[in-house]
Computed example of a mutant assay.
Amino acid sequence: MEFKIIKKDTKPQSLRNFLTAKKMSGRLQTKIRRGLVEVYWGQEKLTLTSKLKDAGELRLITLEPEASQAITASTGEIKVVYEDSNYLVADKPAGLASVPGPSETSDTLANRIKGYLLAQGLNDVAVHVLTRLDYNTSGLVLVAKNSLAQGWISAYQDQMIKEYRALVSGHLAQASGRLDFPLQKDSDSFRQIVTAAGKKALTDYWLLESYPKCQLVKIILQTGRTHQIRAHFAHLGHPLVGDELYGGPRAQELGRQLLHAHKLSFYDPFSGQLRSLTSSLPEIFAQACQS
């Protein structure tokens, strides 16, 4: 498998220092030293001590096959909003699991992406779901197509921004704020509960629109705990509309919590660019606001 890395500056430096500055793991550098990964600048094969003097393009060729995954392919429909040789962003509908689990092993977003990639003739790729969403949450999901892309982007988690839209019940006391409530799994259910013994969880929100019985809010996660948004607003006394697990109103009527992963921004370490994608709100949000 071949990877391309862009060097934007003209600063002279060794390949080792360049990769270190790009937050490339020491594990990969060890593979380069052992000959399991070859690096080329044009036609010149490099070592870790080779000097890079100009801007240009590096080619990394891994001689190891991508580790096989026990994910079966599904022909179910997916909506791809961005794709390159390393990453893919899909727009997940509500009612679809992100990855296989005990209740569904053959038709999840991961299964469908596997089928999508195989249909393109891409056999030596994997499906690493990086930003999972709950079964009944819709919106953008980031996927890495190989283990290098998966591991490298983890070094840039501080540059990943996940922005959501949610319809919360009632009217919030403040138009914006930060919810700082530690979360822990409830021993008696699938819920997350606020407790001093829980893990730190930070949620920032801003009011966008008000309606007679609910409000549309913009949310940016500062941490990524399970059910974080749902549990935080339920703790405030404003559970998400349609959220049966956390006591939200109109759950049986709507069949899903009204939470949508609206925008996703992430740093692409291969190109050195910041990618930013958006997904429109599903029609069910507007219908719920009007009724």
Rank of each mutant, 00 (worst) to 15 (best):
F3Y: 15
D9I: 07
T10P: 05
K11Y: 04
Q13K: 14
T20R: 14
M24D: 05
K31H: 09
R34Y: 10
K45T: 11
L48F: 08
L52W: 09
L52V: 14
G56E: 12
G56A: 12
L58E: 12
E64D: 11
P65K: 15
P65N: 09
E66C: 15
Q69M: 10
A70H: 12
V81M: 00
S85Y: 05
K92Q: 03
G95F: 04
G95V: 03
G95S: 02
L96Y: 03
A97V: 06
S98I: 00
S106G: 11
L109G: 01
L109A: 15
A110N: 13
N111R: 15
R112M: 11
L118I: 02
Q120N: 07
G121R: 10
A126R: 01
V129K: 03
L142I: 15
K145C: 11
S147T: 15
S147I: 14
A149E: 09
W152L: 13
A155M: 10
Y156S: 12
Y156L: 06
M160L: 14
V168A: 04
S169M: 02
S169Q: 10
L172T: 11
A175W: 06
V194I: 08
T195R: 10
T195F: 00
K199G: 00
L207I: 01
L208Y: 03
L208E: 14
P212N: 07
C214H: 04
Q215E: 08
Q222E: 13
T223F: 01
F233H: 06
P239R: 05
V241L: 02
V241K: 07
D243S: 03
L245N: 02
P249M: 04
R250E: 03
Q257A: 00
H260I: 04
S265Y: 00
S265C: 12
G272F: 03
Q273E: 14
T278M: 04
P282D: 01
E283C: 06
E283R: 12
Q290E: 14
